[in-house]
Design a binder for these strands. Structure first.
Ligand SMILES: [Mn+2]
Ligand SMILES: [Mn+2]
Ligand SMILES: [Zn+2]
Ligand SMILES: [Zn+2]
Lengths: 138, 138
DNA sequence: ATGCTAATGCAACGAAGTTGCAAAAATGTG
DNA sequence: CACATTTTTGCAACTTCGTTGCATTAGCAT
């Protein structure tokens, strides 16, 4: 897995800019998923809000990051595995959100289980979010 | 299951007002889950935005409705089963979102399956959202 | 019917997200 | 490296969404 931000950006045919390098670096060295606000803060408000929005959008399109929906309507973003490419994400892992500290983790080792749906419903993608208490907050 | 709006409101110790009656009625006679905007439109903009927000909030607190998180950051609301009371919801069913028409359904007959989490993660609630194509859109 | 309590509507505000456009930075070619 | 071309950025303006305080109105119990 590539960990050098320059290589990742080039591999995805993106020009290498300060904002993209900083934000991607943030994802790589971050423990859990990041909300938009986290990114603004953790980059020291060095970049415009709009730039952060556009960077996240471009990373999404290239399959570099994926979103995690939360019940409080605040989307978190996390790195994809290597095999996610533009448009098609293959992250079928469970997500965990800690009720205490808010840490949002990709449980890469836990795959979303299959379910049988009633007739008439054709499933395409499935997502599972578990809330509870994380290791650090026990 | 109570279907008369007056009875439901009284059972939950809520005063019976026009907005609460209309909005609750909307939920009872609606096929899928409703977004905030749907409610504003479908009540003919008869009530103030703020009233809709407060009504949904109060219905949530009383366990009359529950939320369904979506990846596009737009919360949907749907009726709870009878045994959901203030603070404690028991809707552990799968939710289905149609990619074509957007219909969001509570699959009351499909329970969210169990998963084994890595050590350190203590689960409290779990949620599963399946996206795909609904009966009407096949 | 009357008084008390709770809910509503309005206005104002703040946060979040989008768009157009000019300035600045990145890329590739000689 | 210098240059022209393309892409990205930052700013300003704007829209949408959600929240709060307060005066008015409606619901409820006596
Ligand atoms: Mn993930
Ligand atoms: Mn439901
Ligand atoms: Zn925690
Ligand atoms: Zn459909």
């Amino acid at each position: 897995m590539l960990t050098d931000v320059n290589d990742i950006l080039k591999k995805n045919q993106l020009s290498v800019t300060d904002s993209r390098k900083s934000i991607l670096d943030l994802f790589i060295h971050s423990n859990g998923a990041l909300a938009h606000a986290d990114i603004e803060k953790q980059t020291g408000e060095k970049f415009d809000r709009v730039t952060v929005y556009r960077t996240l959008q471009v990373f999404m399109e290239k399959g570099i990051i994926h979103t995690i929906p939360t019940s409080d309507n605040s989307i978190r973003y996390a790195l994809c595995k290597d095999d996610c490419t533009g448009g098609h994400h293959h992250d079928n892992h469970v997500h965990f959100i800690c009720k205490i500290c808010g840490l949002t983790s990709c449980l890469d080792s836990v795959t979303v289980p299959e379910v049988r749906l009633p007739v008439g419903f054709r499933p395409l993608e499935k997502q599972m979010i578990v809330t509870g208490i994380c290791e650090g907050c026990q």
